[in-house]
């Protein structure tokens, strides 16, 4: 079942394309890697799907063609930047999500913040960048969404926390949802990915099943990445 489809999706800034005519389909039960260096269009692509950017041209279809507002209740997007209000605590972040998203699971969130070694009374303004990154993953993955989009979830994370975040992501993977991850850290992510989509200067340069891509090219995704973007 296709949960997300983009057709000739394009976004330009000042006439320069950040994403250009990207056609992609994201199926349920799969974990996708949206790969490319900085400026390749990964974040712009995700922000358009999340409804933060409007497309210059092309079409985004979420599930059966949900409206922009309705699709936000099915898409769980985690931006790469910290995005919580300073006045909040770890607990009020959970309360906020519980109030606005019907699919939010408070029990899961409670488990996740314990697992991430965060405490409910921690103030957002007092969080280190690593703690904020863990909180972003914890709250996003506590939704039972149909589409998860995680923009650079491993940025600024130490080795121990990386494993926790990866475990948290895998735990949420299910036959009825799709997870899209953008990351520079291909060698770490490679074994998780079912499908890959390489973006370069906003255009699709390679897409397909990760295993088939490896077999066809006779090299790992990480090596292929180095070759494409060298």
């Amino acid at each position: 079942m296709i949960l997300l489809k983009t057709e000739k999706l394009t976004k330009t800034f000042g006439g320069k394309p950040a994403v250009y005519e990207v056609d992609a389909e994201f199926e349920a039960g799969k974990l996708y890697g949206l790969l490319g260096p900085n400026g390749s269009g990964k974040t712009t692509f995700m922000k358009m799907v999340a409804g933060l950017f409007y497309p210059t041209a092309g079409k985004i279809t979420v599930m059966d063609g949900l409206s922009k507002t309705a699709s936000k209740s099915k898409v769980a997007y985690m931006p790469t930047e910290p995005f919580f209000y300073d006045y909040m605590t770890v607990k009020t972040v959970g309360d906020f999500f519980k109030d606005f998203y019907e699919d939010f699971d408070p029990e899961w969130y409670k488990e996740q913040i314990e697992y991430m070694q965060l405490t409910p009374d921690l103030r957002i303004r007092a969080l280190s960048s690593g703690m904020a990154a863990k909180l972003k993953v914890a709250v996003t993955m506590s939704r039972r969404a149909s589409i998860y989009m995680l923009d650079e979830p491993l940025n600024g994370i130490d080795l121990v926390a990386r494993d926790k975040i990866i475990t948290s992501i895998i735990k949420r993977s299910a036959p009825d949802n799709t997870i899209i991850i953008s990351s520079h850290l291909i060698d770490i992510m490679e074994n998780l990915l079912d499908e890959v989509l390489f973006l370069k200067d906003g255009r699709t340069v390679l897409k397909g099943n990760a295993e088939e891509t490896r077999e066809k090219n006779g090299k790992s995704i990480a090596d292929l990445y180095k070759e494409v973007y060298a």
Binding site: L52, P82, F84, F96, Y101
Partner: peptide, 13 residues
Amino acid sequence: NKHGYMLFLTPVN
């Protein structure tokens, strides 16, 4: 600011 994402990502128009 980026904290606005919290508001604008919610399913409200």
